[in-house]
């Protein structure tokens, strides 16, 4: 009989994927909290999970919901100007670490897209889920996930001239 791996091993195995996804989806300053909330939620539900579950898709689905919470909270409470100044520095620092802005501004563009397009593009290109896994995570059809991805990429391309669609 298969059993679930000890939670620590599950955490070690998926921590980088989850962090990459969250940095892309909510930005670096909020990624730390969202990461902790993701894995604490996963831990609460962990021993009710079927041992043959797709653990990677499962934890990224939880991360996606935590990212939605962050975006919803932002919509409810626009950042005061003082906050924006405080936040500007770590974001710029992170971008410098990423190698002078490679992709950083594209993820900023992705963060500004409508909710489903943002979710599909971050799950696809930051987390590497398949369209079928993304459809399951979002509760939509694979076709709808594909369409949202293509709409999102189209918007990005219109806004910036140098985005090449990933293959």
């Amino acid at each position: 009989m298969r059993t679930l791996p000890p939670f620590q091993r599950f955490l070690d195995e998926h921590r980088e994927d989850v962090l990459r996804f969250l940095v892309a989806s909510v930005g670096r300053p909020d990624a730390d909290d969202a990461f902790q909330e993701t894995f604490l939620s996963a831990l609460r539900a962990y021993d009710r999970l079927a041992p043959d579950s797709n653990l990677r898709a499962w934890v990224l689905t939880i991360a996606h919901r935590k990212a939605l919470d962050v975006h919803r909270a932002r919509e409810r409470r626009p950042l005061p100007v003082a906050d924006l100044h405080e936040r500007a520095e770590p974001v710029a620092g992170a971008r410098a670490r990423d190698g002078g802005g490679t992709g950083g501004e594209h993820w900023e563009g992705v963060r500004a897209l409508p909710s489903r397009q943002r979710a599909v593009l971050t799950l696809r290109y930051a987390a590497g889920l398949t369209h079928a896994e993304i459809a399951a995570a979002l509760g939509c059809s694979t076709e709808a996930a594909r369409r949202a991805a293509s709409d999102g990429l189209k918007t990005l391309r219109e806004e910036t001239t140098d985005v090449v669609e990933p293959t």
Binding site: F7, V23, A24, F35, G103, L156, D162
Partner: peptide, 24 residues
């Protein structure tokens, strides 16, 4: 330029994971 996964510093995910485990 394409939509590449954001880079994260070596040890960054491990450090956040350790804080998460302690909190859990």
């Amino acid at each position: 330029m394409s939509l590449n996964p954001p880079e994260i510093a070596p040890g960054e995910a491990a450090a956040i994971a350790a804080r998460t485990a302690a909190r859990a």
